[in-house]
Amino acid sequence: MKYIRIFLLYFQQAFVYRGRSVVWFFISLFNPLILLLFWYAALTGGKTTVSWSLSDVTAYYVLLIISASFLDIHIEETVAVYDISEGGLNAYLVKPISYALVKLCNELPYRLLQGSFGIIVFCIIRFGLGISFSLVNGIFEIITTVCMILCAFCVSFLFKMIVGLSAFWTTDYTGLAEMTGVLILLFGGFVIPLEFFPSFWHTVATYTPFPYGTYFPVLAVEGRLALGEMWRIIGIQLGWIFILGVTYRWMWKRGVRLYTGVGI
């Protein structure tokens, strides 16, 4: 009897977070979808235009892991939980500073530190294990790649800040964070390179900001993109930076009006 009551209490709790329930439903839908896409790509390999060898795939994943250590931003939890939900934002709002820039300053050292670990891992794989990778060469290509990586950082940062700001409107932001996490895994090329995707899903991915945060910069580092293609992608990245920047400002302006700073 006692455990039935406990069960019913948990049941009630589940009804409180309506939005979260919907989001978690999508998450449970997306996870098998990823596997489905993977196997689809594997089994229909002969019919696609994909021209990746095993060493290409290995290089891709190694560079992806290293790039992610630079570019995979983790600021959303601090923004949503510690700052908005628990009132830590108070300390920023009463100071003459830009919240976004302070958070950028907060995040950047972690990315540089973890990125440097990534470079160490790369050196071990490249020189210690003797596994060779084809990397971008040519001075213009290298400079353009650096520009693309900087834009990728901005895209990822703004997107994660927006996810964090959602806590102004939601009681529990974790569902949304999980859902965007799955989308990043899927469309950011973390599960399989986007080239392995069926053309429809490949097109869908390119209309989201996710591949511009990690996937295309990795291809650029690998030297898989021509100079013209790289500038086209930078153009799209700048477009996303503009859209996400405007969205961030819009959410911030409205969100702080709803902010209670916890307690009366």
């Binding site: 108070n90 009463v94 702080v256 009006r257 700073g261 307690g263 009366i264």
Partner: peptide, 17 residues
């Protein structure tokens, strides 16, 4: 508790609209 002291202070310091 709950009288509105902190809310007033938050309005004065610009935290609340």
């Amino acid at each position: 508790n709950g009288a509105g002291k902190t809310t007033t202070l938050k309005c004065l310091s610009g935290l609340l609209y």
